Simulated scan of single mutants.
Amino acid sequence: MAYSEPLIDRSPEVFPVLEEPVRYVEVVSAVVSSLKEDAAYENHEQGHTWKFTYGTAEVFVHLSGESPEDTLLVWSPVLSLPVAEPAKLMQKLLEKNWSDTLEARFCIWNNQVILNHYRTLEGISAGEISRAVTIVASLADEYDEPLRAEFPPT
């Protein structure tokens, strides 16, 4: 027997939606403050950016805005280019992207190897934001010195 109407009326009139919009700036600020109390913050035309040092790594967290279509970008430069044995470096980074970096990844930008995480805000939770920032910061701190030692600048 098929039912044509729901057993429970879940219309907004019966079950109003009480969720307040997420204030991503406040959530990110709390996450960054939990890692580093004295993080620098800048509000500018391109969004909101936090900068802090985690161990030996410099970490940046950027919100492009507050809507679900905007993005969270977390990045940390770990190595300047060019380096000795660039092919060996690229192979190592690609292997690490597959096996070691979780939701983060190595990439190249502005003559630097960057460890980053990039995601739209649609459906993101405070826990996901915390995980993204923590993963990038801790992996950048773990990999920056060994990569610089193994691949010196040319």
Rank of each mutant, 00 (worst) to 15 (best):
L72D: 02
I108Q: 05
H44D: 15
V59E: 03
L102G: 08
R119G: 10
Q46C: 03
K88R: 06
R119Y: 06
L94W: 07
V22E: 13
E66R: 00
T56A: 15
Y54T: 08
Y54G: 14
Q46V: 13
P68T: 02
V83N: 07
E95R: 08
F52V: 06
N111C: 14
R23M: 12
S29I: 00
N43T: 11
I114Q: 12
K92P: 10
L89E: 02
A39T: 03
H62M: 05
V14D: 05
K36T: 13
A30R: 14
V28N: 08
V22M: 10
H48N: 14
Y24I: 06
P86Y: 05
S80Q: 05
Q91W: 02
G55S: 09
V27H: 04
W50S: 04
V78K: 00
T49W: 06
V32S: 13
V83P: 04
E42N: 06
H62N: 14
V113N: 02
E85M: 09
Q46P: 06
G65N: 09
E13H: 06
Q91A: 07
E42W: 05
L35H: 13
E69L: 02
L79N: 06
V27Q: 13
V28G: 07
G65R: 05
Y41I: 11
D38Y: 12
V28L: 01
N43Y: 11
L94D: 09
L89H: 07
S33F: 05
C107W: 08
Q91R: 14
Y41D: 00
